[in-house]
């Protein structure tokens, strides 16, 4: 089956100017996100996964590269064109406590985007009717319409964030750690809701998280990021069955599994910690922590190795049997 990318980045770069030089938050990332599917983006804190999501939505301006949405480079769009575009792409934020206005009621928060965008010709009655529908879709009781966010718990607040993101009927939603602030039993409710919505509305997600168990559960494809670069990308079964990049392998083995049979397995942790993303040297960024590092690793990285079946890996030794 040929899959059509809805969102695609080509050599996307985002550098921040800091006192010590240029911080390479996103460096030469090329990914495809297919219509109706979910790309999970995983990595440790500081690897640039949130910056990538924000740059794709143009909440941050890219330094270089292209972001294609339905084949159009949206980085070239002017403000007015971008405003139209934003209806098609939305974001669900990490922290349901700080991402919604504490002084608006639940229904006003959800209606706000539609009022600003003059949905239904700006007809308030229809907008609030739609708000009630949206609350129903995400599982918020009608009696909460006039409640304020502080009256609700984290799970319900995250549902407000989801209803708000859905209000303009977007095609593409960036979910930035939407469940990491929630308790496990609530986390499962929200994950199920997101998957149900995707099935019903044909939504496309970019799902940013540091939790590999969650990402495996929800994603069609997974991109592993390390220090601003996308080091490996593959469909989720493939990635978990045949990880190629040494970093991916370490990352997978580091997850504590709630299973006794794994108790005595010897974990070889990654030595050291993430190095600085400010003015990184050319060559592999994982080199200093990698047990397979060789001289070749210090040379500038070329294009990622393609294993076919949408599996690519950015490691010079990944073809060897390590």
């Amino acid at each position: 089956m040929e899959r059509i990318p809805l969102v695609e980045t080509r050599h996307l770069k985002k550098y921040f100017d800091v006192a010590a030089g240029k911080l390479h938050a996103v460096d030469d990332v090329s990914i495809q996100i297919y219509e109706g599917q979910t790309l999970g983006v995983v990595g440790e804190s500081g690897c640039g996964k949130s910056t990538l999501g924000r740059t794709i939505l143009r909440l941050l301006e890219a330094t270089d590269g292209e972001v294609l949405f339905e084949g159009q480079n949206i980085l070239k769009y002017n403000k007015a064109e971008m405003r139209g575009m934003r209806r098609k792409m939305q974001m669900i934020f990490q922290d349901p406590y700080s991402s919604i206005n504490p002084r608006l009621t639940v229904e006003d928060i959800i209606a706000e985007y539609m009022i600003v965008n003059k949905s239904f010709g700006g007809n308030r009655r229809e907008i609030y009717q739609r708000t009630a529908e949206l609350m129903d879709i995400v599982g918020l009781a009608k009696r909460l319409a006039r409640a304020y966010p502080h009256e609700l718990d984290g799970g319900r607040r995250q549902r407000i964030g989801i209803a708000r993101a859905l209000s303009l009927s977007p095609k593409f939603i960036v979910c930035d750690e939407p469940v990491s602030a929630l308790d496990v039993s609530i986390q499962a409710q929200i994950l199920n809701l997101l998957m149900d919505l995707q099935k019903e509305m044909g939504l496309t997600y970019m799902f940013i998280t540091h939790n590999l168990s969650v990402v495996k559960h929800i994603s069609t494809d997974i991109a592993v990021m390390y220090l601003g670069q996308c080091v490996e990308r593959a469909p989720y079964q493939e990635l978990f069955a045949n990880p190629r990049h040494p970093y991916t392998k370490k990352l997978l083995s580091a997850i504590p599994v709630p299973d006794l049979s794994m108790r005595n397995k010897q974990i070889q942790p990654i030595r050291g910690e993430v190095t600085s993303p400010i003015n990184p040297k050319p060559g592999c960024r994982f080199m200093s922590r990698c047990e397979f590092a060789c001289e070749k690793c210090a040379e500038p990285l070329g294009e990622p190795t393609d294993f076919g079946n949408h599996h690519t890996c950015l490691c010079v030794r990944c073809r060897e049997d390590l």
Partner: peptide, 24 residues
Amino acid sequence: VGLFGAIPNINDDAERLNPIDGLM
């Protein structure tokens, strides 16, 4: 049982999670 059902297990291919309904 509910707590174990609610965590996504990396070794398990379940389609849906089984959250515990309601709140603490």
